[in-house]
Nucleic acid binder design. Structure first.
Lengths: 186, 186
DNA sequence: GTCTATAAAGAGATAGAC
DNA sequence: GTCTATCTCTTTATAGAC
């Protein structure tokens, strides 16, 4: 049992980066290995189930991140509403590199990833929507209105990430962030 | 010279369907052949440059479609403003199967597709934005306001397509369409 | 745990018959 | 124009040494 060359934490982070940028089919084991500094065989040692195993681990990690940094913050009983929103948007902003990085859910919801991971991805996105819905209700919106805003939030996020990526210009992202703030400040 | 088993028109349509759903890496030559009813070798006869040739033909066809059904309509001198918007949205609605089909630009802007087609995709999306900007100006908006709305339109379209795909529910798409109409009716 | 080496399968692409 | 057959290269995955 040699020492690990790279920690689970760092490993997942690097694998995550490839899947978000390339999707499931586009992420090649060779590249995953090269980018993590491990040889292919070592990657298979860490993830015996191969590529499916890897992508699922990445997705599970992303869910945990969401639970902590989105749901946990938006529903935190210790923070006032403004702070909850501010911290959440800051976390989201960081997650997506200020609009310069793609969304894992989007990248994995094409091609082979869809049927392999569709259910988990759907659950994850639903989690985001629910958290924003709860937030909306916490500031006095009725359920319908809160759900509508929550859906608008995730739509703006996804859309601006796609547009920013294609246009190689994150101004769409910046606009979306401003709009999301406004959604809850009026 | 045997007769063509499938017309160029129908061929492109079927190839388009695969690329929009699977992206560049996810679209396998075998599947493209199977779905069009042609054998691989016949596909190579029609597109000597192989996969790159095919995807570029699909993208060029998409550009022509946009020119005719988006730009051409939004900038048509023969129609009043309301009709121009109505027809355009109807065309877009049809293109995306009422929110049930992905956007080719999005699908091709991941993984290998990005560096191969990034420039063309960017140009195509810019075309959409410009057409909506021109439309906004035609109904009295100043350039800045028109550009802002145009960007919001494409962001809503892209975002709601992603959300609808993941959630397996096109209500996000329906909401986005309503919102786009409102953008130009107030 | 990680490595080198290699097997097994898949994908893109071509040759040549019809 | 389309086909069958085949080739090559890539990709996934495993065996076994260290």
């Amino acid at each position: 049992m040699r020492p690990q060359k790279i920690s689970d934490r760092e490993l997942i982070d690097k694998l995550f980066a490839v899947f978000r940028a390339k999707g499931y089919s586009g992420a090649r084991i060779n590249e995953l290995a090269a980018l993590t500094g491990l040889k292919k065989a070592s990657l298979y040692y860490r993830f015996p189930g191969g590529k499916e195993d890897i992508v699922k681990a990445v997705l599970v990690d992303m869910s945990a991140w969401s639970e902590k940094n989105i749901v946990g913050v938006l529903e935190s009983p210790n923070l006032d509403a403004d702070t909850r929103l501010e911290v959440t948007l800051s976390n989201i902003n960081k997650l997506y590199g200020r609009g310069k990085k793609s969304c894992l859910f989007e990248s994995l919801s094409l091609d082979d990833g869809l049927q392999l991971l569709g259910h988990e991805i759907k659950q994850s996105l639903r989690t985001w929507i629910r958290a924003f819905t709860t937030y909306g209700q916490s500031i006095g919106l009725n359920r319908i209105a809160a759900e509508k805003k929550a859906n608008e939030v995730v739509t703006l996020i996804q859309g601006s990430l796609v547009v920013s990526r294609i246009m190689e210009d994150n101004s769409s992202w910046a606009e979306a962030m401003k709009r999301i703030e406004k959604l809850y400040n009026y």
